[in-house]
Amino acid sequence: MTATGAHPAIRAIGLRKSYGEQVVLDGIDLEINEGTVFALLGPNGAGKTTTVHILSTLIAADGGDAQVAGCDVGRDPNGVRAAIGVTGQFSAVDKFLTGEENLVLMADLRHLGKVEGRRRAAELLDRFDLVDAARKPVSTWSGGMQRRLDLAMTLVGDPRIIFLDEPTAGLDPRSRRTMWQVIRDLVNVGVTIFLTTQYLEEADRLAGRVAVLDHGRLVAEGTPSELKRLVPGGHIRLEFADTGEMDKAARRFPGASRDDESLALLVPSDGGVGSLRSLLDQLEDASIDVDGLSVRTPNLDDVFLSLTGTPDSRKGAA
C-alpha cells in the first residue's frame, strides 16, 4: 500500500460478499484519501451498493478488512457510524413527518441539543431550498425535493465521510446540477466523498479518482484522464466533396487514416481546442476545402464499454 502521507479515509483489502451461490464482491481493494471524491463506477448489479453497504456497516462482509475513518467496520461499527453519513438510492426520509421534523429527528439522534438542532435544521432547509415546504409532510413532496432532503439529513451531523449511492439516479437535470454543486462544496470543506454512479459524466465531472467495478471485481482504477487514456480512438473527422481535396489533406496529415467510401479522413487528436485550432490553421495554409468536420473524443463511455464489455444500459437515460 502506498499511502502518500495523508491518512486514508477509507481503506479496504480483499472485501468479499456472496449471497448463496451468487458472488457479489470478489476481493475489492480500495484506498481513498481524506478530502477527495472517489467514484465507483459500474453497471447495474456490479456490486456498487453492496460495497457501500459494507463500508457503511449496514451489512457484514464475508471476508476481507475495511477501515473507515480509522475504525474497523466489523469491530468498531459505532466508531464508523459516528464519522459517516449515507445517502442511498432510495429516499431515506420519514414520509409521515414534515421536512423540518425529519431534520430535527436527525439532530436529536446526533445529540446536537435542542437549540443547535433547530438552528442546523433551519440552515439546511435554507441551503437546499426547502424552506417553503418545510412544514408540509414529506409524502406530499416531489421526488427531487425528497432527495434533497435526504442529503440534507445526511449532513446534519457534519460527517467527515459521506457515502452517496447513486445520488442523482432519476433526478431531473436541474436537481442533478444542484446535487453536483453540493458535492463540490462539501469537498471544499474537506469532506471525503465516496460516490457510486452509473453516469459516466458524473464520475468524470466530480471525482478525482474513479474505479470501475464489474461483476464484483475492480477492472480499472485511476484519474478520469488516466482511464480515458486506456482507450484509443480520439480523432477529428474531416469530410470532403471529392477525392482530390482528400488526397491533398492526406498528404498534409500523414498519420491520418482514410475512409475512401465516405470520403473522410480521421486525424488522430486529443480533441482539445488547441489541436483543433492548429488543424484548422494547417487546412487554411494548404487551402484545402473541407465539407464537414466533427470531433470525437474518448470518454468514460468508451472506457466503460471496453473494460466491462457491456454497453451501459442507462446511457440513453443520461
Partner: peptide, 13 residues
C-alpha cells in the same frame, strides 16, 4: 420498507 430504517442502521444510535 422505507429507507429511513436503513439510515438509522448507519447512524451511531
Amino acid at each position: 420498507t422505507e429507507g429511513i430504517v436503513a439510515r438509522f442502521r448507519t447512524m451511531a444510535i
